[in-house]
């Protein structure tokens, strides 16, 4: 942090309407959570897109790395029994 003017970066998540997940829409700079929330409202919901907003300082997000992908996700590929399509139904039963 060499630049004294550097403002903290915040990630913004907006829930478009009730019943939906909060979705990441982008980021912005603000000095504290309160201001980040207000700026998120002004920047990312100018057309009334938001029913709810989350902001979190970017430095608090821990992200998985591309290098982790194999160990994180490949082991999930060999469990087809977790998917409904794995199971065969008798012809007489057409939906479950």
């Amino acid at each position: 942090m060499t630049n004294r003017n550097l403002l903290p970066l915040w990630e913004v998540f907006v829930r478009g309407r009730r019943g939906l997940d909060h979705i990441h829409v982008g980021s912005l700079h603000a000095y504290d959570a309160e201001q980040a929330l207000e700026y998120a409202r002004d920047a990312y919901t100018r057309r009334g897109e938001g029913a709810s907003i989350w902001v979190v300082e970017s430095r608090h997000i821990t992200a998985s790395q591309e290098a982790d992908a194999e160990s994180f996700y490949d082991p999930m590929d060999d469990k087809p029994y977790r998917h409904a399509t794995y199971y065969k139904l008798p012809d007489a039963v057409d939906n479950m």
Partner: peptide, 11 residues
């Protein structure tokens, strides 16, 4: 003073 504030003032 910031781009964010520019948007807020416009609102």
């Amino acid at each position: 003073p910031t781009l964010e504030e520019d948007l807020a003032l416009a609102n």
